[in-house]
Computed example of a mutant assay.
Amino acid sequence: MPASTSVDAAPTAISGTATIRLGITLLGAIGFALSYDALRQMAVAVHISGLLTYAFPLVIDGFIAIGICALIILRTAPWRSRLYVWALVGLATATSIWANALHAIHLNHRTKLHLDDLTVGALSSIAPLALAGAVHLYLVIRRHLAANGVAAVAPSAVPAAEAATPERIRQVRQEQGHDANTAPLAQASTSAPEAKGAVAAAPATKAVPKKGGRRITVPDDVLLATARAIGAQTGKVSRTSLEDAVRDKGYTIRKDLAKEAAKAVTAEFESGAGTTRAA
């Protein structure tokens, strides 16, 4: 029976997958070529000179491609970062659609593209805006990868992190554990004597992950490492940003615990101690 289960669970190839991939590739290439031709003609209409007209379409459509790749990299980032990148990709896509449509409309009425001053000015401003957006997009990706790197190194330094846990956070953690253990003990006092074994086993089942994929309450070392990573980026830690970062890692966290951790790590950075740890 186990052997048959493992065979059934093995992934099977879906017929036609290669054809679908080839079709997607061809559609993407053809769509890029058609958009490229229209945007290059728009570059000539806004008086971009020489060979640079061939680079203008890459500024718009190339930014869209890079933005989509960035969304894949930032799929585990806080929702604010993902929303920002989605906004950039949406703006670049809307600009490409507008320029392609404008190209077709103008040629439909005359044999040569002639744009008004406002349109020429708007299209000419795309290049510096794309430069600023690309640089900031790189910084957002780098910050996300750096924060993940700090969190990945944190488990190897559990004793040091445990020793550096602020007293208030340990106190909140103890209160949380006390509340969790009080209910089963009170229920066991009114049940049959043979139920004591089940009560004694209750703490062991506390560490089992939830069925929905969410893990147990965040450990202190991961909580502090995440808070210090946020503090290294912004200089302070807010409760909401810490909760978002912890939940994006798959853990649960109580608001009072997140508030105490945010206050403690913010105090560390204000005193200069947090900067030394982050370094």
Rank of each mutant, 00 (worst) to 15 (best):
A200L: 15
R228P: 03
A186D: 13
A225Q: 04
A229M: 07
A204D: 13
A201E: 15
R214E: 08
T205W: 03
Q233L: 14
A183Q: 06
Q233C: 09
E175A: 11
V218Q: 08
A229I: 02
G235V: 00
S191E: 03
A198N: 07
A198Q: 09
D179P: 00
T217C: 05
H178C: 00
T217E: 11
A180N: 00
G235M: 01
K211R: 09
Q233Y: 06
D221E: 14
H178N: 09
A227F: 05
A200H: 10
A200Q: 11
D220S: 14
A225E: 03
P203K: 14
T190P: 02
G231S: 04
Q187S: 07
D221S: 09
R214Q: 15
R228S: 07
H178I: 10
A192C: 12
T217H: 04
S191Q: 14
D221R: 09
A229P: 05
A183T: 09
V199Q: 14
K210R: 15
P209N: 11
D179N: 10
P193W: 14
K206E: 06
T182G: 00
L185C: 01
E175W: 03
D179G: 06
A180E: 00
Q187T: 14
A202E: 09
V218F: 08
T226R: 08
G197F: 12
H178R: 12
A180Y: 00
R215P: 04
A201Y: 09
A207G: 05
V208W: 00
L224F: 04
S189M: 10
R215E: 14
P193R: 15
A227N: 01
G177W: 01
A200P: 01
A186F: 07
P184V: 02
A200F: 10
A232G: 15
A198K: 12
A188K: 03
K210V: 07
A192N: 13
V222K: 14
T217Y: 05
T217V: 06
A225D: 06
G177P: 00
T182V: 13
L223K: 03
V222S: 11
A180Q: 00
A186H: 13
D221Q: 10
H178L: 07
T190G: 13
P209L: 05
V222C: 05
K206I: 01
A200I: 07
D221L: 08
A198L: 12
A188E: 01
A183K: 09
V222P: 02
S189G: 03
A229D: 05
P209D: 03
K211I: 04
I230E: 03
P209W: 04
G235F: 01
T217M: 07
P203M: 10
K211E: 12
R228N: 08
K210L: 02
T182H: 05
P193M: 10
S191F: 03
V218W: 02
A192K: 15
T205P: 02
